[in-house]
Design a protein around this nucleic acid. Structure first.
Lengths: 136, 136
DNA sequence: CGGTATCCTGACCGATACTG
DNA sequence: CAGTATCGGTCAGGATACCG
């Protein structure tokens, strides 16, 4: 397996609570996985229930198989999603959220909902700034 | 000004609500800014009140001046933070959250708090997976 | 102090081809 | 169907030097 992932540098010390502001805290890594380009989208979609690989790929506009695979592996490694491979041919693999993943997805969903709601307002603000630039 | 930013492709059409799953929706861009490597951390720190450039730089472990500057500019452009430059010498610049930014920061904070809390559990799970691998 | 400009590297990511 | 392997391009982002 060599797709760019490297789980070897997982912390071995006991940690009571993470601190994202610290350079070396593994919490940064979790945050990175959850907020990576595709990570959040995958989690939010899985809130809708179990999905197969190809279902995820089609729901997420623009994702490549490679990145979907990589994203799923990282989130599985973090314990946020569960992979269930049915021993049939052709292969049938199902992805779902773990309890931990449900919580993670909920946070992401709230944020994404907020963004989608506020988008018009933000776009308006952006334009007004560009216009003001021109006025000066 | 040429630090890698390019705000020119801002959408001009009216949008009632964003859709992060669409390839071309600008909501993806906002999400990207908020969840970029440094964006979320800046927003959460600014929840604690007004900060100067150097204060932010010192609180966030590992950030470079360039990335802090770039991050601040993008978030300002999105209307999430406000930049106030005092006309004194030596320069004094204050960054704070806009009302919109407060909301954004709240979402991020919830998520980061959750991660920091669950970190031990996740780390444990990760290790158990690696151990199981060895057993097989 | 609060930035920019410039250069540069490696990680991210997409395209394609291939496999169990 | 559900991936992996490989290649190559783009771009985020770090280091350094410089400026108002």
């Amino acid at each position: 397996m060599k797709t760019g992932n490297d789980f070897s540098n997982t912390f071995s010390v006991a940690v009571l609570r993470g601190d994202v502001l610290s350079v070396d805290c593994p919490a940064r890594e979790i945050l990175k996985h959850m907020t990576s380009r595709w990570g959040g989208l995958v989690l939010v979609i899985l809130q809708g229930g179990v999905h197969r690989f190809s279902e995820l790929r089609h729901k997420i506009g623009g994702i490549s198989e490679k990145m979907l695979s990589q994203t799923l592996q990282r989130l599985e490694f973090d314990g946020l999603i569960k992979r269930k491979s049915l021993p049939v041919v052709p292969p049938h693999v199902e992805y779902s959220l773990t309890p931990l993943g449900e919580e993670a997805a909920e946070h992401l969903k709230n944020m994404i909902d907020w963004i989608e709601t506020k988008l018009p307002q933000i776009l308006l603000w952006r334009r007004s700034q560009l216009d003001t630039q021109a006025d000066d």
